[in-house]
């Protein structure tokens, strides 16, 4: 484990804790896309099936369990919690997330490293994670005035992806035979999707203004 990978994982963890804080403490999920959260739950459920088949480290297993638990907990809150579900911007969160799932699945059937059940699902989870943020970005664009916690949540998610790219570069130069094209390309696509958001986030932070996305 290198410092970039650790920083990436910690940003990811922190972003989820921010979201849980907002939902659990403030009892509001305003500005949060349920579509994106459902996609993440599906991403983790399909990727971390390897919890049962291979052991890497206690760290890996605990992190995987946390990501699984937190993603399903967030979806549960937004769908079923008496107070939280009322703050959900259902009418604004209209992205057709089902249209992302099928193409990602077909792509995973076509482009993968091994044609086995776990391997195809793992590849599917990478493709889906790359685009899972889209409903959230569309929702942010629509609400325009982004509340602080939601803005920070998306920022730390994007930071997590950026640190992973640094981690891959570092590993490529320090380890032998370390290359993973599918992971890299889907990771690059995913990080690129944050570029526009990052621009406005940093701009509002530098001017100490509330984050506002252009129409």
């Amino acid at each position: 484990m290198n410092i970039f990978r650790l920083a990436g994982d910690m940003s990811h963890l922190f972003s989820i804790l921010l979201l849980l804080l907002k939902i659990h403490t403030i009892k509001s999920c305003a500005g949060v896309s349920l579509k994106t959260q459902e996609l993440y739950a599906l991403v983790f459920a399909t990727r971390y099936l390897d919890i049962f088949t291979g052991y890497i480290s206690l760290y890996n297993t605990l992190m995987k369990m946390f990501f699984l638990w937190s993603s399903f907990t967030i979806v549960w809150y937004m769908r079923y919690h008496n107070v939280v579900r009322r703050s959900y911007d259902k009418d604004q969160d209209t992205f057709r997330h089902y249209f992302l799932i099928l193409p990602c699945f077909i792509l995973a059937l076509l482009v993968h490293e091994k044609f086995t059940f776990l391997e195809v699902l793992w590849t599917f989870s990478l493709y889906l994670e790359a685009v899972a943020i889209l409903p959230q970005l569309v929702l942010l664009q629509r609400t325009r005035n982004v509340d602080n916690l939601t803005g920070h949540y998306v920022f730390f998610l994007g930071a997590y992806r950026s640190f992973y790219i640094l981690n891959w570069i570092y590993r490529y130069f320090t380890e032998q035979n370390y290359y993973k094209w599918i992971t890299w390309i889907s990771g690059l696509v995913q990080t690129a999707l944050y570029a526009d958001f990052f621009y406005y986030y940093v701009k509002s932070w530098r001017n100490s203004e509330r984050l506002q996305l252009p129409a």
């Binding site: 990978r5 994982d9 990811h12 390897d50 291979g54 890497i56 480290s57 890996n60 992190m63 995987k64 990501f67 490293e113 091994k114 793992w122 992973y164 981690n167 035979n177 370390y178 290359y179 993973k180 992971t183």
Partner: peptide, 10 residues
Amino acid sequence: AKESRKKDEL
């Protein structure tokens, strides 16, 4: 690329 597939990342 035999061992590069080890999935140690999250």
